[in-house]
């Protein structure tokens, strides 16, 4: 075991995968100069100088180049500096990467990983703080990965690089520096396998990304109320492990679904609908969502903190479903 941050876990996984497979390469803005704003690609240029490409500020071009290289058998790891900028490359993600295998009747494979630093980190307002997992969950042909711990980040990243299909890899800025134990050696985590991060009997809290840590904190607080919550981390949002989620809800009879992004038509909406469709008879309270209100991210720190769901939001939601 080693103690790593999420940033370190992704950094290490990237180095290991590039060492293992010569077809892996890095492309993105500022990936050499600074290792990216969050220094995830630090050291790649020194170690693999022929396999890192620092680009013009041209997201459509960056992803398009990645798609073509992947079609030709390479394994590009694309960094989009801030998730928000992926909107400049939506055609390349949605119409190109996601569709190639299907449109060619299974001939084409697009093994591309698109890294997406996202969410609220420093207070950088509406164009640098979005998450938008659900945009990509909605598109068949894409895999959406949302790690919440260093162990998951490392294992899922290695799986992402080796996957034959496109991966959107969400890196939540607010937990880049979160530390955790990571097993030594090679551990790949399959997509579509949720993890129960805390076992409990009274209510299921399905939490995504940074909400996992908040849900675990809420769990401690809720012990004082006499409530024992179970925290389920889907880890990948597409494919989504509905079995583990539903098994937990059948056991507890109550469900709170937490995401940091806006709830409206969001990630949690899909999870909540899945629970309602499959566990209706087991539910003792309506499924409740925790998420941001349907507003852009404000700048002023007190405003930003007021709209992003916190530990107290989870605590409040659990109390509501327990009432």
């Amino acid at each position: 075991m080693s103690t790593l941050t999420i940033r370190d876990a992704i950094h290490d996984a990237l180095h290991e995968e590039m060492e293992r497979d010569e077809s892996v390469f890095v492309i993105g803005e500022d990936v050499v100069a600074h290792g990216g704003p969050y220094t995830v690609t630090e050291g790649i240029a020194e170690r693999f100088p022929d396999r890192i490409f620092e680009t013009p500020i041209a997201e459509a071009g960056i992803v398009g180049v990645g798609v073509g290289a992947a079609l030709a058998g390479m394994r590009p790891v694309v960094e989009i500096m801030y998730l928000d900028f992926i909107t400049c490359a939506m055609d390349e993600v949605v119409n190109q990467a996601a569709k190639m295998r299907y449109m060619t009747g299974g001939q084409a494979s697009v093994p591309i990983v698109i890294r997406l630093p996202c969410g609220l980190g420093r207070y950088i307002a509406a164009q640098h703080s979005q998450i938008m997992e659900s945009w990509f969950m909605h598109v068949p042909g894409l895999q959406v990965v949302a790690p919440s711990t260093p162990k998951d980040a490392k294992g899922l990243f290695k799986t992402a690089v080796r996957s034959p299909d496109p991966v959107l890899f969400f890196e939540y800025k607010s937990i880049y520096t979160a530390e955790g134990e990571v097993p030594d050696g090679e551990r790949l985590i399959p997509f579509g396998e949720a993890e129960v991060k805390r076992e409990g009997e009274d209510a299921t809290v399905v939490a995504v990304g940074p909400m996992v840590g908040k849900a675990l904190e809420a769990g401690v607080t809720l012990e004082d109320d006499g409530y024992d919550i179970e925290v389920v981390d889907p880890r990948t949002l597409s494919p989504l492990d509905t079995e583990t989620i539903c098994a937990s809800v059948r056991k507890t009879g109550r469900a709170v679904v937490c995401e940091e992004d806006s709830s409206f038509a969001g990630t949690g909406a899909e999870i909540a609908a899945t629970i309602a469709e499959n566990c209706f008879a087991d539910l003792r309270a309506p499924v409740t969502r925790v998420g941001m209100p349907h507003v852009p991210m404000p700048f002023a720190p007190p405003l930003a903190d007021s709209v992003v769901p916190q530990v107290a939001s989870v605590v409040g939601a659990v109390r509501r479903v327990m009432a």
Binding site: G64, V65, V67, G68, L71, P76, D91, N95, Q96
Partner: peptide, 24 residues
């Protein structure tokens, strides 16, 4: 033949990417 493409200019980035694969 990596495909006709229903998006105008949709092949230009990917073609550049196949060129990058060749260069690497």
């Amino acid at each position: 033949i990596l495909g006709a493409n229903g998006i105008v200019a949709g092949g230009i980035g990917p073609a550049t990417g196949t060129g990058m694969a060749t260069k690497i």
